[in-house]
Design a protein around this nucleic acid. Sequence first.
DNA 1: GCGACAG
DNA 2: ATCTTGTCGC
Length: 228
Amino acid sequence: MSNNGVMIRVHNPHPWPSTEQEAVAVQEHLRSLVRFDGEPEVVRTAAGLDVAYREDTNELVAAVTVLDMGTLDIMDSVVVRGKPEFRYVPGLFAFREAPPLLEALTRLSVEPDILVCDGQGLAHPRRFGLACHIGVLTDTPSVGVAKTAMGRYEPPGEQRGDWSPLYCDSEIAGRALRTRHGVKPVFVSVGHRLTLDTACELILRLAPFYRLPETTRSADRLGRSAPA
DNA sequence: GCGACAG
DNA sequence: ATCTTGTCGC
């Protein structure tokens, strides 16, 4: 269902922080807004969010694709460029990548039922990774899929679908999920308005061919192939 | 104090 | 993130 109105809106109760101390304070407040209910009854579309870097222009290139969950066809896509307003700091990743991603989400014309972010959700030092941040500010179900873990885990079984708990500070914050036989697992954690079971189920559906979900792969391709 | 540390 | 060759396997 497409229309000309804005489907995803950003509700940001804080000015964007300029120091690491302020950023941590913002996270500690926003994390109280993460919800685990309100899961969508049926997920028909899923958005992939990724950011590429252009060394030549010192710009961030945020790319968002919306895929049909049934066919994995790309139904919509948006690219937004922006200047980095925050240096990369582990744990404060969202303050660097979220601005252009949020702007891109606002410009979509096909509504995504869930957002698949390239990074952590609850599997974060303060339980508020990029996926939680994006999910809360847009009040949209979201999940984080990271290529490397921020917590500790034991290797899951070798079969596709096998998983093991991902621990952060002795708490289960996500899962190491095997999307392909014999390939390094991806690290899935809830962002907002989803359960971990549903999140893993969706990621497996989105990753029938490769280690990473097609949402992430398509957004990554789009971002790095964007015109100069 | 030293190492670890999403992209 | 990005820089990069060859190599193994389906």
